[in-house]
Design a protein around this nucleic acid. Sequence first.
DNA 1: TGACTTGTTCAAAT
DNA 2: GATTTGAACAAGTC
Length: 263
Amino acid sequence: MPELPEVESFRRYVEETSLNQEISGVSFRNEHMLLNTSKAKLVKTLKGNKLAGTLRHGKYLFIRLAKGGHLLLHFGLTGDVAYVDEKDDEPRFTVLLLEFKKSGSFAFTDSRQMGKVGLVDDVNKFLRNKGWGPDALQVTKDEFIDRFESRRTNIKTALMNQKLVAGVGNEFSDEILFQCGLHPESRVDKLGRKGLENVYKQMVTILKKAVSVNADRDRLSQYFFPGNRKAGLECPRCGGKTEFKTVGGRSAYFCPSCQELVA
DNA sequence: TGACTTGTTCAAAT
DNA sequence: GATTTGAACAAGTC
């Protein structure tokens, strides 16, 4: 599932494959995925334009356009990007296809169609309107603590709340809390500055590591849950058994014997 | 076949 | 009003 590390690797992929090429053809299929724009405007804006640069905030990717503004991509559950050399190699579930004049195409794919495609002029204004918090890899320790310390909800829900800090999803929230030795239902306002400082440190450490390996779960073997969220696993720290529980309407996996419940 | 999955949004509750 | 909770949505997978 595309969380911050995946979106960052998508960003790099766009940088490496698709910048500065004139777009000669645009196809777009799923109108219910549009954000802030119409299909006609999207196609008109992209045709003859070039992708000129990239910017990521949380799980959002903004691709700067040479003629002004940005193409916005949100990946939902199943969004992905692909560059293909040949036209007839168009990937399955392509939502947006940009054909480059010289050669090749850029595709945004999304099998479950929960992602978003849009046009954004002013990125900061867009983020402000959404109410999104600072990016999880940009936020400072003090700002993180300020935003969290008076919250009366559980820590897992708070970490996934994009308005507090943007970028953490379900899978990495489980790992952050595992590394902290904190039960996902621990109350945020009971953790204290020390507790929150630890959450912050683990969040940054884990996300940075995941970014450094392009979110490849096979290269995160020093961690426990990424790519491996199941109940009944043996905990590598204490030998206990992992459990499943629904927390804040989301699946949570954790080790009840070494993740302390602070309530 | 239908239960299950998650990021986001919206309505309802506090 | 601000915060929190919970349900709804979409659709492919097993």
